[in-house]
């Protein structure tokens, strides 16, 4: 049992805590939940994604930014209260210009793919 508490506070080492099967179960559940939410939000329709760029439907923007804001407040709230070790939270590394160019390519692809 002792190893369960070694890295408290979070992020929790799911694989060390519950083993491989547990790790897959947790990731599968989160992935399924995420996909389900996108699906019922209508995000599986390319028209909806493209509509964002024609400024006729701002749902994508609102959902994504809401998710960012909620996650941000919860992450830093947990860190402030001592429940999360922010230094160990994965932050994707920044490659500034490649990131900008890649984002543009993906955005253009969204619009074209959505007709």
């Amino acid at each position: 049992m002792e190893h369960l508490f070694v890295s408290f506070p979070g992020p929790f080492p799911i694989q060390a805590m519950y083993g491989k099967i547990g790790f897959y179960t947790v990731t599968l559940l989160i992935g399924f939940g995420f996909g389900y939410m996108l699906e019922i939000g209508g995000f599986a329709k390319s028209e909806k994604l493209a509509a964002q760029f024609y400024l006729t439907d701002m749902t994508v923007f609102k959902v994504m930014f809401s998710a960012i804001v909620v996650a941000m407040v919860l992450v830093f709230g947990a860190a402030a209260l001592g429940g999360l070790d922010y230094n160990r939270v994965f932050v994707n590394e920044t490659y500034l210009w490649p990131g900008i160019v890649g984002g543009l390519i993906m955005g253009v692809g969204f619009v074209i793919g959505g007709y």
Binding site: V91, E93, T94, Y95, L96, P98, V101
Partner: peptide, 12 residues
Amino acid sequence: DFWNSSYMGRYT
């Protein structure tokens, strides 16, 4: 080369 350029690490 471009792909790996302007690396800034964990930058917030």
